[in-house]
Amino acid sequence: MKWLITGGCGFIGTGLIRFLLAEGGHGIRVFDNLSTGTRDDLGQVAPFTEGSGAEAPFPEAGEVELIVGDILDEAALSQAADKADVVVHLAANTGVGPSVEDPRHDCLTNVLGTFNALEAARHNGVGRFVFASSGAPAGEVEPPIHEELPPHPVAPYGASKLAGEGYCSAYFRSFGVETVALRFGNVYGPGSIHKGSVVAKFIKEALSGERLEIYGDGSQTRDFIFIDDLVRAIRLAAAQPHVGGETFQIATSQETTVGEIAALLVSLLAAHGVRDVEVFNGEKRVGDVMRNYSDTRKAREWLGWQPEYGLEQGLDRTVHYFLS
Rank of each mutant, 00 (worst) to 15 (best):
I203L: 02
I203P: 02
A206F: 04
A206I: 06
A206Y: 07
L207M: 10
S208W: 07
G209V: 11
E210P: 05
E210W: 06
L212Q: 04
E213Q: 13
I214Q: 02
Y215L: 14
G216N: 15
D217Q: 07
G218F: 02
Q220A: 07
T221R: 05
T221V: 09
R222A: 13
R222P: 07
D223C: 11
D223T: 11
F224C: 06
I225E: 14
I227E: 01
D228E: 11
L230C: 14
L230S: 12
V231P: 01
V231F: 02
R232V: 15
R232F: 11
A233K: 06
A233G: 07
I234G: 06
I234L: 14
I234K: 08
R235W: 15
L236P: 02
A237H: 00
A237T: 02
A238H: 00
A238Q: 00
A239W: 07
A239Q: 15
A239R: 15
A239K: 14
Q240P: 01
P241C: 05
P241A: 03
P241F: 00
H242N: 12
H242S: 08
H242I: 01
H242R: 09
V243M: 03
G244E: 05
E246D: 13
E246W: 07
T247L: 08
F248M: 04
Q249P: 10
I250S: 03
I250E: 06
I250Q: 06
A251E: 12
T252I: 14
T252P: 13
Q254P: 01
Q254D: 09
T257A: 11
G259Y: 01
G259P: 00
E260L: 06
E260M: 09
A262I: 05
A262M: 06
A262F: 04
A263K: 15
L264K: 11
L264T: 11
L265A: 07
L265W: 03
V266Q: 15
S267Y: 05
S267T: 12
A270N: 13
A270P: 08
A270I: 12
A271I: 05
A271Y: 03
A271S: 10
A271D: 14
V274Y: 13
V277H: 09
E278Q: 15
E278P: 07
F280Q: 02
N281F: 14
G282Q: 07
E283I: 11
E283S: 12
E283G: 08
R285Y: 13
R285K: 13
R285T: 12
R285S: 13
G287C: 05
D288Q: 00
D288R: 01
D288C: 01
V289M: 03
